[in-house]
Amino acid sequence: MGAGLALLLGGCLLIYLASPNQRWRARPLAGMPGRTAGALLLALALYQLQHGMQGVAAVFTWSLGVMLALTLLPFLSALFHVYRGR
């Protein structure tokens, strides 16, 4: 499960950094290494999770992880931004 969640976090991070609204880097990642690689990592994460887990349980865990990571990333980078600006 740990490996699956690590892949998932990496995938979400890439997808966030490829968004035009990201605030972590000066400019967003290009679509190719960003979104595509991110989607690939997310697919790998799901594959990893359903190894040894019941199918539905893996899908639920994966969805929760994606929701949590993509919710937290904008908040963390906004906080980071505000504190750097002060």
Partner: peptide, 19 residues
């Protein structure tokens, strides 16, 4: 299971807590 977070053990329970 989706309401009571009864899968995936402790990591999933933390996800429910934070979400």
């Amino acid at each position: 299971a989706l309401h009571f977070a009864t899968f995936g053990g402790t990591p999933v329970r933390w996800m429910y807590f934070l979400l």
